[in-house]
Write a protein that binds this DNA or RNA. Structure first.
Length: 247
DNA sequence: ATTCTTACA
DNA sequence: TGTAAGCA
């Protein structure tokens, strides 16, 4: 474990002793360990200090940085901090696998519920065999698919879509995670006092990726749907769809 | 010699 | 954010 005196810490982070003291007074930096009269900082402090400086450079005010840190420490996800949770709804957080009967699947997919489509769904991980019936690892995905089918999209193409979506999302998620790994989790083997921080980051990675994907998808949908369907059609659909809420 | 606190600009 | 005085 590497210790720093205040001067070492300031140098390592590329700031001044004075500023470190200010951040400390403002409670942006956790209280250092005390050895007699002098303050001893750890790598965790350095990581935090770099975060503070980074946010300052990006124009955040002290109060905002503190909010972030408090939220972080109280164990809330970044999504919650940014208020995305309300937009997303709790549904994105976690979903439980659900048992689905053959009868249910028949009802949802009608005569397109064929052995070959079942086989493909299983290959794609959309369904799992449980003896005579099935389990859906992601009921949301299943429902979304069922809705497309009920709208008249052939199940074959829905499965094509699911496969493509899976690949694309995997790719994007990998990029996000890799960026975090590269810039935040910089050590292959964290030191003892970094371990809490690392596990914190890992724990937040999942909700973080989901928030990011959701936000990006929402923006993308707004841009792409009118382009594909044509502005007039969308306008018509929006106005007739929710008469009460249409602006 | 260095750090810490307080205070002022 | 920098600087200074007085202290441990």
């Amino acid at each position: 474990m590497v210790d720093y005196r205040i001067d070492d810490l300031a140098r390592a982070a590329g700031t001044t002793v004075r500023n470190v003291r200010v951040y400390q007074d403002r409670e942006l930096l956790p209280p250092p360990r005390r050895e007699g009269r002098t303050a001893i900082y750890s790598d965790a402090h350095l990581v935090r200090l770099r975060l503070i400086i980074n946010m300052l450079e990006r124009g955040y005010a002290f109060a905002q940085i503190k909010e972030m840190i408090v939220a972080w420490e109280s164990g809330r996800s970044l999504g919650e901090v940014l208020g995305l949770e309300e937009v997303v709804g709790a549904s994105w957080a976690d979903e439980e696998p659900r048992a689905v009967t053959v009868g249910e699947l028949r009802k949802k997919f009608g005569k397109q519920f064929s052995p070959s489509n079942i086989k493909r769904s299983i290959e794609l991980g959309l369904l799992e065999r449980r003896g005579r019936s099935f389990v859906s690892p992601s009921p949301q995905l299943l429902d979304a698919g069922a809705e497309l089918v009920s709208l008249g999209v052939p199940l074959n193409e829905v499965l094509d879509l699911a496969e493509q979506l899976q690949k694309d999302i995997d790719h994007v998620a990998e990029i996000l995670v890799e960026v975090v790994r590269k810039h935040v989790l910089t050590r292959p083997v964290p030191s003892d006092d970094e371990i809490p921080y690392y596990s914190d980051v890992l724990q937040r990675l999942r909700p973080l990726v989901m928030s990011a994907l959701n936000a990006a998808a929402a923006r993308s949908a707004e841009r792409v749907i009118p382009g594909v369907l044509g502005d007039k059609l969308v306008e018509l659909l929006v106005n007739t769809g929710k008469p009460g809420e249409a602006s």
